[in-house]
């Protein structure tokens, strides 16, 4: 199995504030890497760096063995291969569900309108959203919006999918409909890096769990080890807090 994504000693700072210290990570094809850690530990920043929405200050990021963190690299070309789903959905409010999903296939991947519609229809019906195709996002529940956002990312057939706390903005009752899509994707063999506070879900999908604290990966390993038998005191404390918050 080859690595789809590799991070080598990545560092990132905002001014004086060093947000990522020496992060190294390898994500083999068809695996899911789950990032856990308290708010402010650097999960979003890490994902944004991988997506080239932020530039890194040291180290290297490789996509399919090719370095994408070089300054001269065409960021648009890289982002054509990996997409990101955000905590706050970020659907385009002036476009219908269908238009949200078909925009990138048409404009970025040169698909014809018919092809794009076919892809969109297929995905929307697979995830039970076909009847919402002509609605605007503000008519959808949070769960439905986030499912559309995931479908929008899938429509470009990404090599790597990044998911940043996709359920954190949702009512507890809506969380599962979103997580079940991600489980399905994992079943399809999609390569993913995701940040989440849903530990039960993490256990189900993660091939590797990384616990981030203050921009460092303090502990990593298979879910059944890191989540069930954490070695590090800090990891234990964090999991205890999450557990008390009722999300395990």
């Amino acid at each position: 199995m080859s690595n789809v994504l590799e991070l080598r000693n990545v560092r990132k700072s905002f001014g004086e504030n060093v947000v990522l210290h020496d992060i190294s990570l390898a994500v083999p094809e068809h695996t899911a890497t789950v990032l856990i850690g308290a708010s402010g530990s650097g999960k979003s920043t890490l994902l944004r760096c991988i997506n080239l929405l932020e530039s890194i200050d040291d180290g290297a990021i490789l996509l399919d063995g090719k370095e994408i963190s070089d300054p001269g690299i065409d960021g648009d070309a890289v982002r054509r291969k990996l997409t990101m789903v955000f905590q706050s959905f970020n659907l385009f409010p002036h476009k219908t569900v269908l238009e949200n999903v078909t925009l990138a296939p048409i404009k970025v991947h040169g698909k014809s309108k018919e092809e794009a519609m076919e892809i969109a229809t297929l995905l929307l019906s697979r995830f039970d959203l076909l009847e919402k195709a002509d609605q605007y996002p503000d008519r959808l529940s949070g769960g439905q919006q986030q499912r559309v956002a995931i479908i929008r990312s899938l429509a470009v057939n990404p090599r790597l999918l990044l998911l940043d706390e996709v359920t954190s903005a949702l009512d507890p009752v809506l969380v599962n409909e979103v997580l079940s899509i991600v489980r399905d994707l994992k079943g399809d063999g999609m390569t993913m890096v995701l940040a989440t506070h849903e530990m039960g879900f993490a256990t189900q999908v993660a091939d590797e769990v990384c616990f981030l604290e203050s921009g460092t990966i303090l502990e990593r390993g298979p879910a059944h080890e890191v989540l069930a038998r954490p070695q590090h005191q800090r990891t234990q404390d964090f999991l205890k807090r999450v557990h008390e918050a009722g999300r395990l």
């Binding site: 944004r48 997506n51 929405l53 960021g75 648009d76 982002r79 054509r80 997409t83 990101m84 955000f86 706050s88 970020n90 659907l91 385009f92 925009l103 990138a104 404009k107 970025v108 991947h109 956002a149 929008r152 990312s153 470009v156 990044l162």
Partner: peptide, 21 residues
């Protein structure tokens, strides 16, 4: 800015993001 981020992460260029989003 999150609208821009969403568009860019789908692969849209700066100009396309401005034009369509």
């Amino acid at each position: 800015p999150s609208q821009r981020a969403a568009a860019r992460s789908l692969g849209l260029s700066q100009a396309q993001t401005m034009r369509h989003v």
